[in-house]
Design a binder for these strands. Structure first.
Lengths: 173, 173
DNA sequence: ATTACTGCAAAGCATTTGCAAATGC
DNA sequence: GCATTTGCAAATGCTTTGCAGTAAT
């Protein structure tokens, strides 16, 4: 399912988010190195420990280029040479969010989704009520508007999230 | 805790959302009537039944003027003259969202929050990482920007949600 | 009369947590 | 060596669900 998406995108894409994802996939190895360096700095600063498990989880999380669920990632790491326990996955994902490598998404269903943000294009989502599809869109003006609102309220923005619910083009009869 | 907020707002407020809430509280009785009429129409259209429980829950949900959790509302309705069971509360809240009387908020913690939207001023939220406070802000330009994005993507908006995470004025040292 | 809804209590299930063993510093 | 982290498995707790009884049409 990931693979299919990868293949179809290989052909050509005019969607800026898809293009960005393509780029991210191609540059995965180097990006993970940079991300790891940043995460290590974050951990040191917190005087937390730099561990194998944390490296494995960062790597696995950044390798996913869509929204994923904590339990899915935990399941995928529950066996194999780099196995990490479920509890550790949950604990580490929280750290990665804190460090700004991932963002949490809590809209689609009851379960939390995560999405890589490290060196990724800032984008927002439209979610189709009918088919559940996530449509990604880029709108710098939106971000600017939010920055302005924060200034007005003396609010120090760490990150923001915009979601639109409704019916997508394909589902509109 | 609700009461305190109500009292302090009674004095005076320059916050448009707080003012709107004041107005809503004053006009609660009539607003519930209009909301009920609209909900009845919604139910009829769905050929669902117009029941006592549904009236009670609509009333209770609109009486709350902040974000509330399903389990809190369920608890508050678990005894008293108008008691309704937990299951029914959950089931009805979903209907009220579908009917557009409430909106779901899934950001703060794992639990879903609800917020009345019927005849309320459209607003967005900033959530403080430190104190967890919800700051409400109104920004019509933001809504317009989103409308424009939807037009571009042929997306039929039912509703949207904007949240900003970060540190509020009071918590910024 | 029929059919949907409610109440109840049990089940579901992602996430969290306590504790002993392991690992980083 | 000491403190943090991990793995494990059990607990947690909100939410959902099945079913028998009740209420709406």
């Amino acid at each position: 399912m990931h693979e299919n998406a990868a293949i179809s995108e290989t052909v050509l894409s005019t969607n800026p988010v898809a293009l960005d994802r393509q780029r991210a996939r191609m540059q995965h190895a180097e990006a993970v190195e940079r991300a790891w360096a940043q995460f290590v700095a974050f951990l040191r600063d917190k005087s937390a420990r730099v561990t194998q498990s944390r490296k494995i989880i960062l790597d696995a999380a950044l390798a996913r280029d869509d929204h994923f669920r904590a339990d899915q990632l935990a399941a995928s790491l529950s066996s194999g040479p780099n196995r990490v326990s479920r509890g550790t996955v949950y604990r580490t994902l929280a750290l990665l969010v804190e460090a700004g490598m991932l963002r949490e998404i809590r809209d689609a269903d009851t379960h939390v989704h995560y999405e890589p943000t490290f060196e990724r294009l800032r984008h927002e989502h439209m979610i189709c009520d009918q088919c559940g599809q996530f449509i990604e869109f880029v709108d710098p003006a939106l971000s600017r508007q939010i920055v302005a609102a924060c200034r007005q309220y003396n609010f120090n923005q760490r990150m923001h999230r915009v979601v639109v619910f409704g019916t997508c083009r394909d589902c509109a009869s």
